Simulated assay, not measured.
Amino acid sequence: MSFDLKISLLPETAATLSPLHKKLNKLIEQIEQQKLDLALWQNAKSEIQSYIQLKLVPIYRNLHAVYFRQLNQLWQHLQQEDFAKADLAQLDAKLAKLAKQLKKSNYLNSAELEKIAEVDAFYQQHHAHNQKPNKKGKSAQAEQSKVEGHVDIEQETVEEHESYEEWDSEQYQRQKEEHQRKRLAQKREQSEKLVNQSLKTVYLKITAMIHPDREPDETKKAEKTELLQVVNQAHEAKDLFYLLKLQLQLETNKGKSPKALTDEHSKFYQMALEAQSQRLASQIDDITDSFHWSEQPKPKNMQVKDVYKVIDGDVSVLKEQVKWEKERLKYMEKVKGLEVLLGNGVL
């Protein structure tokens, strides 16, 4: 689409624009930038994916392999050895965490994933079994403590819950993230519906304004025929932004001041443009989210160069992590080594 429709750059009209019309021009400029950003991300996508495959994937594959060996070794010790209550709490927490990390891994084979599913299911059931009794125990203990005049009424309950506090926190976080995903999906669905409705409305208005069959002048008729072809292409591509800009330009260029645009028209433009902007922002987020592997929050207004920085930073951190996890695994392979880790609280 090569037509220049940025009416905000026309000096003869800028001074006469209403506040709402100026707001529309800001939205137009914002969307133009978003379209450029989206094209940039789309063009960079394959290159970034290749870089991830080269740099990150081998390290994650190695790390997950070490994690699985840790899980398998700890699970065997748990079945074969007797441990103190405090040590059991550490082992349970570690195994539950490893199972959670690995159960959706793309780097392990089916037999390994079956073992992980077995461990994960065990701790899911274990947690569910202990959760309600512990709550009843806490209530009963509180009542008993009141009767006996005990000051520390929560000590035993805290010990019982110690192994599961992290689990509860993670469960809450999962529910929170799921709620956020649903809200975002609803917002996107509403924006998509408004865009589709607006697309049809704007398209019909433009075709009524420029239809060649209504033009007696042959030169202008040829121009309108060419423009109608472009409009049809934009409609097929669902390019609401282009069609809105064109409609705005056509109505402004009727020989009337931009003030001639009614509030109703302007509000419609605003809603439709905001919906288009939301759609573009969602498309950009989908791409940048797929590239953001780091545990750190995604940088605001993330740029392509930021992705490479994050990947390189993750590579450095993960290499160190693999090194230390392998060292930890050596201790886990023998009961005495495992006892050292448990005794120092570094399991």
Rank of each mutant, 00 (worst) to 15 (best):
residue 324 W to A: 15
residue 275 A to I: 02
residue 259 K to R: 11
residue 315 V to R: 01
residue 325 E to L: 07
residue 315 V to A: 00
residue 297 P to N: 02
residue 241 F to Y: 04
residue 268 F to A: 05
residue 246 L to F: 08
residue 257 S to I: 08
residue 306 D to H: 02
residue 282 S to T: 14
residue 242 Y to C: 04
residue 284 I to D: 00
residue 316 S to N: 08
residue 288 T to I: 11
residue 280 L to W: 05
residue 272 A to N: 00
residue 300 K to I: 10
residue 264 E to F: 13
residue 316 S to D: 06
residue 322 V to P: 03
residue 292 H to P: 03
residue 321 Q to M: 13
residue 262 T to F: 06
residue 255 G to V: 11
residue 295 E to M: 04
residue 248 L to T: 09
residue 312 D to S: 10
residue 253 N to D: 13
residue 239 D to M: 07
residue 235 H to I: 03
residue 244 L to R: 00
residue 253 N to V: 11
residue 282 S to V: 09
residue 304 V to K: 02
residue 281 A to W: 12
residue 314 D to A: 10
residue 296 Q to I: 05
residue 227 L to P: 10
residue 238 K to A: 10
residue 227 L to V: 12
residue 288 T to W: 02
residue 307 V to H: 03
residue 267 K to L: 15
residue 241 F to Q: 00
residue 270 Q to A: 13
residue 284 I to P: 00
residue 246 L to A: 05
residue 289 D to H: 10
residue 248 L to Q: 14
residue 237 A to H: 14
residue 312 D to F: 09
residue 222 A to K: 14
residue 286 D to E: 15
residue 281 A to K: 14
residue 241 F to P: 01
residue 300 K to N: 06
residue 302 M to R: 00
residue 278 Q to D: 11
residue 250 L to F: 11
residue 290 S to F: 02
residue 282 S to D: 15
residue 276 Q to P: 08
residue 319 K to S: 04
residue 236 E to S: 12
residue 305 K to L: 13
residue 230 V to I: 14
residue 262 T to Q: 03
residue 225 T to R: 07
residue 319 K to W: 01
residue 242 Y to F: 08
residue 319 K to N: 07
residue 238 K to Q: 10
residue 254 K to H: 11
residue 237 A to E: 15
residue 279 R to M: 03
residue 231 V to R: 09
residue 291 F to Y: 01
residue 293 W to T: 00
